[in-house]
Amino acid sequence: MEQATVKWFNAEKGFGFIERENGDDVFVHFSAIQGDGFKSLDEGQAVTFDVEEGQRGPQAANVQKA
């Protein structure tokens, strides 16, 4: 698992990007966020996640709020 920071997340559209420590951004979809209830992330929030290869490149999976 990697630890990184949420760059931005649009709760209405259900997706955003996580900024990795190496500077690369990773796409995150609300369905990858672990937990119950409304799944959203806040800008600047610390998260841990795995990286999977998606249809359009790397994307976050198993996202957990740190």
Rank of each mutant, 00 (worst) to 15 (best):
M1Q: 14
M1W: 11
M1E: 09
E2V: 11
E2I: 14
E2L: 14
E2W: 14
E2G: 10
E2R: 11
Q3I: 14
Q3K: 14
Q3E: 10
Q3M: 13
Q3N: 11
Q3F: 14
A4E: 03
A4T: 03
A4H: 05
A4C: 08
T5F: 14
T5A: 07
T5P: 03
V6R: 01
V6M: 02
K7P: 00
K7E: 01
K7H: 07
K7Q: 02
W8H: 01
W8A: 01
W8R: 02
W8C: 10
W8M: 02
W8S: 02
W8N: 02
W8G: 02
W8I: 03
F9M: 01
F9P: 00
F9Q: 00
F9D: 00
F9L: 01
F9H: 00
N10V: 04
N10S: 12
N10Y: 05
N10G: 03
N10L: 05
A11E: 08
A11M: 10
A11C: 14
A11S: 12
E12T: 13
E12V: 13
E12D: 11
E12Q: 14
E12H: 13
K13C: 10
K13M: 11
K13V: 08
K13W: 11
G14E: 02
G14A: 04
G14F: 03
G14Q: 03
G14W: 04
F15N: 01
F15G: 00
F15E: 02
F15Q: 00
F15P: 00
F15V: 04
G16D: 02
G16M: 04
G16E: 00
G16F: 04
F17A: 00
F17R: 01
F17K: 03
F17S: 01
F17Y: 06
I18F: 05
I18T: 03
I18H: 00
I18K: 01
E19H: 14
E19L: 14
E19D: 06
E19F: 13
E19M: 15
R20W: 08
R20G: 05
R20E: 04
R20Y: 05
R20T: 08
E21G: 10
E21F: 11
E21N: 11
E21D: 11
E21L: 12
E21M: 12
G23T: 05
G23L: 08
D24M: 12
D24Q: 13
D24L: 12
D24W: 09
D24V: 13
D24K: 14
D25R: 11
D25L: 15
D25T: 12
D25Y: 12
V26E: 00
V26S: 00
V26H: 00
V26P: 03
V26I: 13
F27Y: 06
F27W: 05
F27S: 00
F27C: 07
V28A: 02
V28F: 14
V28Y: 04
V28S: 00
H29V: 04
H29L: 05
H29Q: 04
H29E: 03
F30L: 04
F30A: 05
F30M: 06
F30W: 15
F30E: 01
S31A: 06
S31V: 04
A32Y: 05
A32L: 01
A32G: 07
A32T: 06
A32I: 04
I33Y: 03
I33H: 00
I33N: 01
I33R: 00
I33D: 02
Q34H: 10
Q34P: 05
Q34T: 10
Q34V: 14
Q34K: 11
G35T: 09
G35E: 09
G35S: 09
G35M: 12
G35F: 09
G35L: 08
D36L: 12
D36K: 13
D36N: 12
D36Q: 12
D36H: 12
D36E: 13
G37V: 07
F38R: 08
F38N: 07
K39S: 06
K39E: 06
K39L: 10
K39R: 12
K39H: 06
K39Y: 06
S40M: 10
S40H: 11
S40F: 13
S40E: 07
S40R: 11
S40N: 07
S40C: 15
S40A: 10
L41D: 01
L41Q: 03
L41G: 03
L41N: 02
L41T: 02
L41E: 02
D42R: 15
D42Q: 15
E43L: 12
E43S: 15
G44R: 06
G44A: 04
Q45I: 08
Q45L: 07
Q45P: 01
Q45T: 09
Q45F: 05
A46H: 14
A46E: 10
A46S: 12
A46M: 13
V47K: 03
V47L: 04
V47F: 03
V47Y: 04
V47A: 04
V47Q: 01
T48A: 07
T48Y: 14
T48E: 07
T48Q: 08
T48V: 10
T48L: 11
F49S: 02
F49K: 02
F49R: 02
F49T: 01
F49C: 06
F49V: 03
F49Q: 00
D50C: 14
D50L: 13
D50G: 09
D50W: 15
D50M: 14
D50T: 15
V51A: 05
V51K: 04
V51W: 08
V51S: 04
V51P: 03
E52N: 08
E52Q: 12
E52S: 10
E52G: 08
E52F: 13
E52L: 12
E53H: 12
E53L: 14
E53G: 07
E53D: 11
E53N: 12
G54F: 06
G54Q: 05
Q55K: 14
Q55T: 12
Q55S: 13
Q55P: 15
R56K: 12
R56D: 07
R56S: 09
R56M: 09
R56Q: 09
R56V: 06
R56C: 13
R56I: 07
R56F: 14
R56H: 12
G57P: 04
G57T: 04
G57V: 04
G57N: 03
G57F: 04
P58S: 08
P58M: 10
P58W: 11
P58Q: 09
P58Y: 10
Q59N: 05
Q59L: 06
Q59Y: 13
Q59W: 09
Q59D: 02
Q59V: 10
A60E: 00
A60R: 00
A60M: 01
A60L: 02
A61I: 13
A61W: 06
A61R: 12
A61P: 02
A61V: 14
N62T: 06
N62C: 09
N62Q: 05
N62R: 10
N62K: 08
N62L: 06
N62P: 01
N62S: 06
N62G: 04
N62I: 05
N62Y: 07
V63W: 00
V63M: 02
V63L: 05
Q64L: 10
Q64M: 11
Q64W: 11
Q64Y: 10
K65I: 13
K65P: 11
K65A: 11
K65R: 11
K65F: 10
A66G: 10
A66R: 12
A66D: 09
A66C: 13
A66W: 11
